[in-house]
Design a protein around this nucleic acid. Structure first.
Lengths: 355, 355
DNA sequence: GACCATAATTGGAACGATCCAAAAATGTCA
DNA sequence: TGACATTTTTGGATCGTTCCAATTATGGTC
């Protein structure tokens, strides 16, 4: 029920020094004698003093508030939750705090959230932009000299740093794997074509098809919502093609799961009649049946690297826009047919019943 | 590259009014004329003005900073990620922002994080305390008049509000379900006994055993780490008992998955030779094979209610400590044997091969 | 046009810290 | 002891906003 909060002046009065001295203690200045420092800190503890950072960075020029804004588009997606944790690890150990907000893919909410963060004087921003974010949306931020790092979703054209995963390389590896298993007609399923991630992944697809001497028919690229439902739609469309594909790399794991659902509806078993590869390696990929072959990315690592990059820029005052590409790796499980082929070799009689 | 930030005085000068008038516009005061309001807002936009909230709540007595601190013990656990999202939904729609931090179950980190949040003048705190948090840890917070809501993990003895799930009722329902399937020896597996959650869940277990006329032998309660590994250990211990249990309710889903692993190691199939019920209903519970029967809680709902409770307290100035209990429900899937019993009835020949 | 009520505007003093130049205390040495 | 260097300490002034009392503009009425 202490109505009045304790300030430096209260401390100063109690100790018998000036507020300037207390301030110096607060900043750990070497100018203050050991004796007074001890007295001051002791009294601070006794009176239950809490530092008022708002008042502090009012005086301190610029915004060294020590707050890092983190904006993600979907925190319920464990991919982004991991990302946020990665950021937090670095940010906390650097003595900063994290301001986390969720946009739920809403541009409006994203705008509001960024505005509020700026009002609170964030020292930097890490953002996984909502779909439809324009490069120009970052303009006022960089103009104000605010360090910004874009994570996961690239924003070409915006003059900001970014940390993304190796979308092209990942899909390339997936396609190459299917080709090595003997597939000739390989589809790319899912994703919105108006996103940078889609562009990068289909680029990897095209390169891999060519590199493996396969026919790169654009009809084999079927866009859809990047969701389970989108996957169902994409595969049903793919199976209607004249020269049916025998396998597919998918935009992400959600699409891949949808593709598996769609295959079963057509009495095809993923990994037997049709090979499926996802992207992300979400938790369920491991535990699903059949387990999903997928491209594994390290969201926490991306978060950590984004945070490091941002801190570097904050300390450097103003650095060049820089792009980091986080490597990915193919995790072979059951839906691509590779393990199954080996198992069948082993015992022909297993698992006769479908459903 | 605009070195000097734009302030109300700049706006005032540009428009030709006093800073006080600009301030009134900022607060949406009805005292200012429509004409000037329009001019001011327009100039604010032109000059790219950003409101300095720090300076504002320096003047505004007390801390109506508009920041809600949220502390969770493990954000990588989707349960807590969902909780944070639930909080965010309410908090954002009320015009507040969320300050999210992760403690990774570290008391030290929790202390640091709370201290930093206070320095930034949070208006309230929602916390899922790290293991080992003492009720006395909340003392200075409530003493300072800071509204606090404890979520998920109760902290009996601390004079703070809390939102928890119906641990007792959930376990009661699980035990009752197993009893209705004919089980007589039912174990409770996993969890640290020194936590409030454990106490509540075992209380539900004991009540249900008695209510169903079953022998409530304390030897059937086997504690362990609340993890997959802990589950493996707990079940191996349970199977060594003289009068072996035929089913178990587990502390949480992670333990339940571990129990399934342990059963298979003993050539028992979950849901056939032994019934298993989890708690939480994490995402993997649905997709695992066999799918986990579990007590479903609604973490996002808990988050929302915690946020609502906190906002109520913030607005009310100072309210009584209040406890909300979020209801749970039993989700019957495969590991309890109920669906299997039905399926066997249907077709005796299905699924002969294990593993 | 004088009067009044109401509407709109305005300086200056806060808020709680930091910063700076300058003062006071302390130590050193001839 | 005095002169000087060095270590500690200290009053304002300041950051960008809100608050308050006081001032000025506006409109209506007789």
């Amino acid at each position: 029920m202490t109505e009045t909060r304790v300030t430096v002046v209260d401390i100063a009065r109690a100790v018998g020094v000036s507020k300037s001295t207390v301030s110096l203690v607060l900043q750990g200045s070497p100018l203050v004698s050991e004796a007074t420092r001890a007295k001051v800190t002791s009294v601070m503890r006794d009176l239950g003093y809490v530092y008022n950072r708002g008042a502090a960075n009012l005086r301190q020029s610029g915004s060294k508030s020590g707050i890092i804004g983190v904006v993600v588009n979907d925190l319920t997606n464990s991919f982004f939750a991991e990302l946020a944790v990665g950021v937090d690890v670095i940010v906390q150990s650097a003595g900063f705090v994290q301001f986390l907000a969720n946009t739920s893919e809403s541009i409006d909410r994203q705008r509001e959230v960024i505005a509020t963060m700026r009002e609170h004087g964030i020292s930097g921003l890490i953002i996984s932009p909502a779909r439809g974010t324009e490069p120009s949306d970052f303009r006022p931020l960089v103009a104000a000299g605010l360090p910004v790092v874009v994570a996961v979703r690239n924003s070409p054209g915006a003059k900001v740093s970014s940390v993304i995963s190796d979308n092209e390389g990942g899909i390339f590896a997936g396609v190459a794997h299917l080709a090595s298993l003997g597939h000739r007609r390989i589809a790319f399923l899912g994703g919105f074509p108006d996103t940078a991630v889609f562009q990068e992944r289909t680029a990897g697809y095209r390169k891999a098809m060519q590199a493996n001497g396969l026919d790169c028919d654009d009809g084999l690229i079927i866009a859809s919502a990047p969701s389970r439902l989108g996957g169902v739609e994409a595969i049903s469309q793919a199976l209607k093609l004249g020269d049916r594909p025998t396998g597919a790399v998918c935009f992400n794991d959600a699409v891949a799961f949808g593709v598996c659902d769609g295959l079963r509806a057509q009495h095809l078993e993923p990994g037997v009649g049709f090979a499926v590869i996802g992207f992300d390696d979400v938790i369920e990929a491991r535990t699903a049946v059949p387990a999903l072959t997928t491209i594994s990315v390290d969201p926490q690592g991306i978060g950590r690297r984004a945070a490091q990059l941002l801190l570097k820029q904050i300390n450097a005052g103003k650095a060049e826009a820089e792009t980091l590409i986080s490597s990915v790796r193919l995790v072979v499980r059951d839906t691509c047919g590779a393990t199954r082929a080996a198992a069948e070799m082993d015992n022909v009689n297993r698992r006769q019943t479908g459903s």
